[in-house]
Design a protein around this nucleic acid. Structure first.
Length: 290
DNA sequence: CGCCCGACCTGAGAGC
DNA sequence: TGCTCTCAGGTCGGGC
């Protein structure tokens, strides 16, 4: 699901929508995510104000003062901000509502609702329940198991040619798998690893250790450009990702290889191929990528 | 340590 | 229509 651009787009919208608001209460309808949600969450969060929202890799960190709320969307999670639920008499006539919010989200998978002091709510919806919602004491946030091993953010200056050169040294894994290893570089998933390699002109199956200096350099540059473009477009909606307003990302139409097996490369018209690497489908153009 | 694989879940789409 | 099969944006833990 959401990779760095989707989470970052979400963070920006949520900061506008809910920063400064106070959490009145938290309703947990389904605590069984990959790990059980702490049922004391409501008690621990009620009355706290949301100072701001940060991002590390694909994790959102809600700054609540003494504590930090860590949220990961897994493969299919979304977090949408909804205005106060309408009174029954205001409801849309049957068949009326079309465009709006979360119309595509199945309400059966609204697992957690954070009700705010203006009666709006933040709803966590996640059909596959691979996500994570966890509370951390502020002082221990950086040492949390989920965060302590993360490499530099893919948009960070620290993710540069020298760094990737060192990390690729002696590594026999495919470069795509290396890019998806969150301990090496944080934020890339299956879509953006494939897209970055297309932009860099490097095949996903190439062994990391066998890359030329110039290729490493192009991968780093392509990754940064790609992520900035994707964030600017509000991320990618391949299946059902929706942003905080319940709208799909606009980067989907700009994917060059992901999900395009058998279609023609937009650059050279060669058929896009697919190959499984590390149990994930990889897409590439055999002509544009060496 | 590096690497590979299955597990965790539900739903969409393809094929019969 | 309905069944069965495969696949899906991510981790995590175990085995070698």
């Amino acid at each position: 699901m959401p990779e760095l651009p989707e989470v970052e787009s979400l963070r920006l919208l949520l900061n506008l929508a809910v920063a400064g608001r106070v959490i009145d209460r938290v309703e947990i309808r389904e605590p069984r995510l990959r790990r059980l949600i702490d049922l004391q969450l409501s008690k621990a969060l009620s009355g706290r104000s949301i100072r701001g929202i940060e991002r590390r890799a694909k994790y959102l960190l809600f700054d609540l003062g003494e504590v930090v709320l860590l949220i990961h969307l897994g493969m299919s999670g979304s977090l949408t901000h909804r205005k106060a639920p309408r009174a029954f008499s205001d409801a849309e006539p049957a068949g009326g509502g079309h465009d709006s919010i979360a119309a595509r989200l199945d309400p059966r998978h609204d697992h957690v609702r954070f009700v705010l002091d203006d009666s709006s709510e933040l709803v966590y919806n996640d059909p596959r329940r691979f996500g994570l919602i966890k509370l951390l004491p502020r002082a221990e946030a950086n040492a949390a198991d989920e965060l302590k091993e993360l490499g530099p953010d893919a948009l960070d200056e620290k993710f540069n040619e020298a760094y990737l050169t060192v990390k690729a040294r002696g590594r026999r894994v495919a470069i795509k798998n290396l890019l998806m290893d969150q301990r090496v570089v944080a934020g890339l998933g299956n879509i953006y690893a494939a897209e970055a390699l297309f932009r860099a002109g490097v095949r996903p199956g190439r062994r990391a250790a066998g890359l030329k200096r110039s290729e490493i350099c192009r991968i780093v540059g392509a990754t940064a450009d790609l992520l900035k473009d994707a964030i600017g477009a509000g991320g990618t909606s391949f299946r059902n990702y929706l942003d905080a307003r319940g709208r799909p990302g606009r980067f989907s139409s700009r994917l060059m290889v992901y999900g395009r097996a058998g279609e023609r490369c937009y650059v050279c018209s060669t058929l896009i191929r697919t190959r499984v690497l590390g149990q994930r489908s990889s897409f590439y153009c055999p002509r544009c990528q060496e």
